[in-house]
Design a protein around this nucleic acid. Structure first.
Lengths: 148, 148
DNA sequence: AGCTACAGTTCGGATTCCGAACTCAGGAGG
DNA sequence: CCTCCTGAGTTCGGAATCCGAACTGTAGCT
């Protein structure tokens, strides 16, 4: 079993983990959620090599996380990369990373960006809950049943 | 700015994203949350090369996500890798991946493992909420304010 | 026609990864 | 004491991936 086999295991955790676990992919998604959409802007802000950027964008297009959308500027037609619904749905993953980072890897300096609930100005955090009783859960509250 | 610079940016999202975005790291954490603790078992179940496994474990030790704990077997003392509190706190990240995977990458076959709330047997899912008003949030409900 | 900007592609060298063999420590068995 | 065995790495040569820089192609503007 090689790395890429985890992308096809019948496991709803290994599949996303293999996809997003490739180098640069999480950082690329961060940049996208921050509003970057164009090849040149990804390249300039992240300083990723152009060939790897091409590859990662293509993988995310293929997985239907991103879509190429035409736009007009100076009367020209170009394309930009935007999140699909599937891609937007990755928000909790990024927020879970950020919530963890805020607790355990917080920088001394000022934060690079801040997030607030539009309606009430409150802070944003990720959590795990039970769909039945709505209790907030930690790893210890959850029973794992492995197949066989 | 190279890849590793994202690990030291004053950004609570880029730091975890750079750490967990290295190849194998998310899959390694998955295996740990499934109960694997020993070098040989990681190597056998994931089929990762031994040198890369050594490297990834060392990074997670250095970041205080894992700790080496002595154990006894056949009268011998060996060491195993266990989650620290910081490591256990990554649970929402893995659950967010799984929630996304269940919605968008679900396999046709039977799931590799299942999760249930110990107390009530309910399903487990990750979500994003506002710490003020407790509303569940999507990317569109959140205002991003970039520094400067 | 020439210049510019965006969005890639190509390619040689550097880095990382892989697989297999090797090392090392400690206990068991003789 | 000597040898075997096992877990946990380390080493190393070849393969794959990544990087940086240059190159290509397309379309509009002057």
């Amino acid at each position: 079993m090689s790395y890429s086999d985890f992308a096809t295991l019948p496991c709803t955790l290994s599949r996303p983990a293999a996809l997003l676990g490739e180098r640069w992919t999480l950082l690329l998604l961060r940049q996208i959620f921050l509003g970057t959409r164009r090849f040149e802007d990804f390249q300039a802000t992240m300083d990723i090599s152009r060939s790897v950027l091409t590859d990662r964008l293509n993988v995310l297009l293929q997985e239907d996380v991103l879509k190429r959308v035409p736009y007009h500027e100076d009367g020209r037609t170009r394309h930009e990369y935007r999140l699909t619904e599937k891609g937007r749905d990755l928000y909790p993953v990024l927020m879970a990373l950020r919530t963890w980072g805020a607790k355990w890897m917080a920088p001394d300096e000022e934060e690079f960006f801040q997030l607030h609930h539009r309606d009430c100005g409150g802070d944003v955090r990720a959590k795990v809950e039970c769909t039945e009783c709505a209790a907030e859960l930690t790893a210890r509250d959850v029973q794992v049943t492995t197949r066989q």
